[in-house]
Write a protein that binds this DNA or RNA. Structure first.
Lengths: 335, 335
DNA sequence: TTGTAGGCGTTATCAG
DNA sequence: CTGATAACGCCTACAA
């Protein structure tokens, strides 16, 4: 009852192993009839190729390492969906390395791990290139950045500046003061991301272009409690100042927007009327709560990132490419 | 500049490949001098064996799949530290599969993935055995549960009943009412864990043994905001009822205890005097906040789980073994 | 105790 | 288009 091999399939289909290998790899030079016979043998035998054997025979590992932060957001689930879809089509395996902490990252970069054995590397959100040079990775693996941008590296990134701008352009459509809540950025330099800076600069730009100024700015860490407290502080200020309501608040992440809506409900403030709320991310629950927000084509970004890496693996040697993805505004009741 | 192979090492050390292979696998029949020479060649060349080649030649992949939830808690970082330490010693690679969502889990179990090819499986916290049967995994891989218990499977688990009991025994040392805050368990049956149930039953047992009853019970989801709200509710009730203070509160996770302390501070209630607080987990920040809590030997549990799996891989065929680990009470100012 | 040779399941390179 | 056959890097007898 041992696992069937390519040999077994070849015998059963009455062809040579080479032919079986060809149909396995979608090689064009196979006659239709032959291909069908092989395919039938494969399914009859419930044959699955041994990945280790192809790794050793082909000189490639057919494995991609994906390094990503472990924020338990839907964002990374969707990102992985996009990445995995593309890699699976190309028969690559993906190994996920959650960056739980800094020392773990360094271990991943040690030469004994799977990360080292992989054919390519996907780095999400954080640009760890610098660190890679410190550790002078011997085999410079093809690398692609996703949800991050850097020069001289292939990357697929979300244009958060544009996202911020769209939010700003929507904000200025209404009169009244405009406020914003930003997300506190990580302290560790290594784990820094420019996402929220970008959203801010896009937003500010739109306001400036419309000749509008920003009222209050608050900063909150990415945490429900902190978000709620920040929302309360902002509303306290807004409610006590003359002409404070109606106003518009750009909450630069849906988590913040949700907390703001909660706090507004307590105070009897009506979304879209007393306080117009614009979020960011289009989280799954954003629709139900009627949050006007920015949707990000995350899966597409992941898919494209994977595609960029695959072209490198297939021999592309040209200059680094950058693929930009634009968030789109989804208008709902909150603004 | 290509990766050195076992051949290169053999040449450099002036021995045959067989000898190199033997020292690689800790085979006893190698002379000390020879071994040293080989070892030197290995480190000179910075040679690392190709795991895929090992797999295909030896029939093992030397890879372990670790399935774990992605709660970004220190708990899983420590657990992985323990697991990886043991596996590294045995020259096994570990591939981490974060269980971001249900469909992803099913994909991991698909026959093409690394998880399927691994020599063994570690499942953390959740017992997914049932699912495995549904999917009738053909190659029943050796599996070990960690931070979870089930019959007929090797497992290393934290005795949360004892942890709860220790908390209870500490709680009953003081007079006054005793309250508790529990963590809401996951809705999806598949992703269920008994951890919090166990803490509860241990705690209740200790109270019963001491002839004491439980006052108020609250449930909170594992989220800072929810925890804070729950704490507020509890304190509202406690402060308004006669003889409500001083009292003792068992917060079954440090996250809950921290939120409780925050809310107490707002109300001017003194920890350890007005309200005695007992947490659970001994998070890194628990010491600074003076939280009396239960420390869990998480690394040891991980290490032991890995060891159990390794014995299976080395041919152990006996009955399932269960290794129990006991939390220990750390008394600080809060109780 | 050590070296040599055969084989593991694929892919890739040839002739045909 | 297809079938042999030589790699790929390692492990494991078997022989020395």
């Amino acid at each position: 009852m041992r696992k069937p091999t390519i040999q077994d399939v070849a015998v059963k289909a009455g062809v040579g192993v080479g032919t079986v290998s060809r149909v396995l790899n979608n090689h064009p030079a196979v006659r239709g009839v032959t291909r069908d016979a092989v395919l039938k043998a494969i399914s009859d035998l419930e044959y699955t190729p041994n990945p280790h054997a192809r790794r050793i025979a082909g000189g490639k590992s057919y494995t991609i390492s994906v390094l990503l932060p472990v924020l338990t957001t839907e964002f990374y689930t969707r990102l992985l969906d996009g990445l995995e879809a593309a890699f699976q089509e190309a028969r690559y395996d993906v190994a996920i390395f959650p960056l739980l902490d800094r020392s773990r990252l360094e271990r991943y970069l040690g030469s004994h791990t799977l990360a080292y054995q992989a054919d390519g590397l996907v780095m999400a959100t954080y640009n760890l290139q610098a660190l890679f040079h410190e550790h002078r990775l011997r085999t410079q693996q093809p690398t692609v950045l996703v949800d991050a941008y850097a020069e001289h590296v292939d990357c697929a990134y979300m244009d958060n500046v544009t996202g911020g701008r769209l939010a700003g352009e929507h904000a200025v459509k209404a009169p009244g003061p405009i406020h914003a809540i930003w997300v506190e950025t990580e302290l560790d330099q290594l784990f820094q991301t420019r996402v929220f800076e970008d959203r801010r600069s896009g937003f500010m730009g739109a306001l400036a272009a419309a000749g509008r100024g920003l009222g209050r700015e608050c900063v909150s860490s990415f945490d429900t409690l902190a978000a709620r407290n920040t929302a309360a502080q902002l509303l306290d200020a807004v409610q006590t100042e003359p002409g404070g309501v109606p106003c518009t608040v750009f909450a630069s992440a849906d988590l913040l927007a949700g907390a703001l809506l909660d706090e507004m409900a307590v105070r009897g403030l009506q979304p879209g009327v007393d306080v117009r709320v614009i979020g960011f991310d289009n989280q799954p629950w954003a629709a139900a709560r009627g949050i006007t927000t920015l949707h990000q084509p995350v899966e597409s970004m992941g898919y494209e990132a994977a595609t960029l890496l695959l072209t490198r693996l297939n021999g592309y040697r040209g200059p680094a490419r950058a693929r930009r993805f634009e968030p789109s505004l989804i208008v709902r009741g909150s603004a």
